[in-house]
């Protein structure tokens, strides 16, 4: 006997927001796990703290050293991991839904390679400061994204053409980047490569507050776009028939998706793979048919924080978080392909 899917209906003016129970529960459980992980990360370090000390420091009950360690030193990094992880998860979800491709992420539109090109040019040509490097990376990434979008444009942009053009442009930039690294002296090459691996080292409250504010605004925009996004998963024609202005919605989704990744890149360098795997893990856990934003955000946050914890405390030497996410993501990707291939047999 079938009682249909249980759904929670929240009436808000005339629009009924339907949330599936399983998604709600999965999000809640993952959020709890992330909170637990956050407490663990705040406890761990060269000066070990107890969970009680962490909680009391967070609630303002500690002063002196414990307060400084938890609130001033460790909390910015933990917050950054959570907020930026969520941003990357949503960014990936937007791209995967829009391009109807589970292996899509903002890298598809050339952002990653473009930002690395920008960073390399600053390091090599002007030998610039860290802030200049960040600026150049953003300009490079955005310019590449715009170029890919424009090159793929022909009376509107189709997802497939965006993928093909994006892969082509990325490949060209990748070889340009290789060439630039070969031109560099060792120290410059290492500095550029270190930035490109992505790290939450030295993230300050300033960066977290500014980056977090940007992410918050962008997440709200992404939420507003989630309805047309879902309709477009049925295909452009069906979505258009149902009143979605497909081209405009797709442009808005590209802008929000790239801006989310750009914000994270500005603060921490590119943190790879979270945008690729978080929406896929979320979709499997929540068993939703399409790509949903909230579970992807929570999975991204948990994944980024966990990867950063492993990178700092479990790896034999402290590693950039980007390397751990690549390992986690690479392993996951292999598993994904393996199980999907097996299902088709």
């Amino acid at each position: 006997m079938d009682f249909g899917r249980r759904v929670l209906t929240v009436r808000r003016r005339r629009v009924a927001v339907r949330l599936e129970w399983r998604s709600v529960i999965v999000c809640a459980v993952l959020a709890l796990a992330a909170a637990g992980m956050a407490v663990l990360a705040l406890m761990t370090g060269s000066y070990q703290l107890s969970p009680g000390q962490v909680v009391s420091a967070l609630s303002g009950g500690e002063t002196g050293l414990v307060h400084d360690i938890v609130v001033e030193w460790r909390l910015p990094r933990v917050t950054a991991a959570l907020v930026f992880g969520a941003a990357l998860g949503v960014s990936g979800a937007v791209f995967q839904s829009m391009l109807r491709n589970p292996l899509a992420d903002p890298g598809i539109i050339g952002f990653s390679e473009g930002s690395f090109t920008g960073a390399l040019i600053v390091v090599l040509v002007v030998n610039g400061t860290y802030m200049q490097l960040v600026g150049a990376a953003l300009v490079g990434g955005m310019a590449t994204a715009v170029a890919v979008y424009v090159l793929a444009y022909r009376r509107g942009v189709q997802g497939f053409r965006l993928i093909v053009v994006g892969i082509g442009v990325s490949a060209m930039l990748m070889s340009l980047n290789r060439w630039l690294i070969l031109q560099a002296d060792l120290e410059q090459a290492i500095a550029a490569a270190a930035w490109n691996a992505g790290s939450l080292n030295g993230v300050s409250w300033d960066q977290v507050v500014i980056g977090g504010a940007c992410v918050l605004v962008l997440l709200v925009l992404a939420g507003m776009l989630s309805r047309p996004m879902r309709q477009m998963e049925l295909g452009d024609d069906a979505a258009a028939s149902q009143g979605v202005r497909v081209s405009a919605a797709r442009l808005a989704l590209v802008v929000v998706g790239v801006a989310l990744t750009a914000t994270v890149t500005a603060a921490s360098g590119p943190i790879a793979f979270i945008s690729l795997v978080a929406p896929q893990i979320a979709r499997r856990l929540a068993r939703t048919a399409g790509i949903t934003l909230a579970p992807a955000a929570v999975v991204g946050a948990l994944l980024c924080l966990t990867a950063d914890y492993v990178a700092q405390h479990i790896a034999p030497t402290p590693l950039p978080v980007g390397i751990i996410t690549v390992m986690l993501g690479g392993g996951y990707l292999g598993w994904l392909l393996f199980t999907e291939a097996r299902r088709r047999l």
Binding site: R100, N101, E233, L234, G235, D237, A238, S241, A289, G290
Partner: peptide, 10 residues
């Protein structure tokens, strides 16, 4: 429309 393909298991 004539062809509509859905890649997601709705």
């Amino acid at each position: 429309t004539q062809q509509w393909s859905v890649e997601f298991p709705f």
